[in-house]
Computed example of a mutant assay.
Amino acid sequence: MAEWKQKRFWTTVSVEGEADGFSILLDGRRVKTPAKASLQVPSQRMAELIAAEWEAQEEVVNPNLMPNTRSANAAIDKVAIQHTEVADMLAGYGDSDLLCYRADSPAELVERQAAAWDPALHWAADVLGARLEPRAGVLHVPQDPEALNILSKRTHAFNNFELAAFHDLVSLSGSLVLGFAAALDWQPVDDVWSMSRIDENWQEEQWGVDEEAAETVALKKADFLHAKCFFDACSD
């Protein structure tokens, strides 16, 4: 049996400002999320990005070409009903942050990690008020509870849409600090992504590039860049 696919049924796409946000309308009817909630977003910019995705659909709707719609759906249908749990999960990255677990050899890798990751930890200490300390090796050593508490409060302060984007910034990079660095524009987002790939890039230099793995990484990078764009659109 052929898989059912939704066909385009609308002619016009528009954005409507309301008292508490912006809605996307198809032939004057509000778009709903998969859970049947109103797809209402916090900024006109985000609404316009989503509206453009719906306008771009042709005969058959392709959700893979609608990343902003998917992110907004996640914010409304998932994050909104478990904001505390999602924030707790992301804040937990701080105690095992990628940037804090360093190689003890070879010297060149040690130097690369320090050159990229030490400035990020210094930035977190200066701007976020939370200093995380690096360690050599992979054995877990707890971080300062006060620093973790500061990072947790900042994470919990994000609204549902920001937190949906922040989820991908943190989970895809493996670092709470890099998630904040991307969200708060410490460095260009491409550079932040590169910081998260130092170990993998080193391995590729030693053993060569696995084409299948490279394709997966490219998809993850695209998702990371989208998450940054979606985060920025929360307040435009």
Rank of each mutant, 00 (worst) to 15 (best):
P134K: 11
G21S: 05
E85N: 10
Q82S: 10
T155N: 06
Q187A: 15
M46G: 03
H140S: 11
F180P: 00
F224S: 01
L169S: 04
I198C: 09
R30N: 13
H226P: 00
G17K: 05
F230M: 06
L184N: 05
S23E: 04
P34S: 01
I198V: 15
V61T: 09
F22R: 02
V13S: 12
Q44P: 04
E212V: 13
V86Y: 10
A75K: 01
R70H: 13
N160W: 02
P106A: 07
Q143E: 12
D236R: 15
D191I: 00
N73I: 00
K32Y: 03
D190A: 15
D104A: 15
L172F: 09
V209T: 14
E108G: 01
A124D: 01
T69H: 12
A233D: 10
F22D: 04
F180T: 03
T216F: 13
L225P: 00
V86R: 03
I81A: 07
G174H: 03
A120G: 02
I76W: 06
A183W: 01
W4G: 00
P145V: 10
M1R: 12
R8L: 01
E55C: 12
R30V: 13
L148G: 12
M1N: 12
S152M: 07
V138E: 14
A37H: 09
L225R: 02
L169R: 02
L26N: 06
G21T: 05
E85S: 14
D236F: 10
L25F: 11
A91H: 06
Q187V: 01
I76Q: 00
E3Q: 13
E200I: 06
M66L: 08
V217I: 12
F224K: 02
Q57A: 08
A52G: 14
A2H: 13
V138N: 14
L49M: 10
Q82H: 07
E3K: 13
E204W: 02
Y93N: 00
G208A: 07
K5C: 11
E3N: 11
R45P: 01
S96M: 15
W207N: 11
A35P: 01
V110Y: 05
G129W: 10
S173R: 04
D190R: 12
A75Q: 05
S194W: 00
A182E: 02
M46F: 08
L90F: 07
A183I: 01
H140W: 15
Q113K: 11
Q57S: 10
A214R: 08
K221T: 00
Q113P: 04
P134M: 09
S38R: 02
L39I: 03
E215P: 05
L151F: 11
Q40H: 14
G94N: 06
R131D: 11
D88G: 08
P34A: 09
A87H: 05
H226Q: 09
D20C: 07
S173M: 00
N201E: 12
L65P: 06
Y93F: 15
F161W: 04
V192Y: 05
L26F: 15
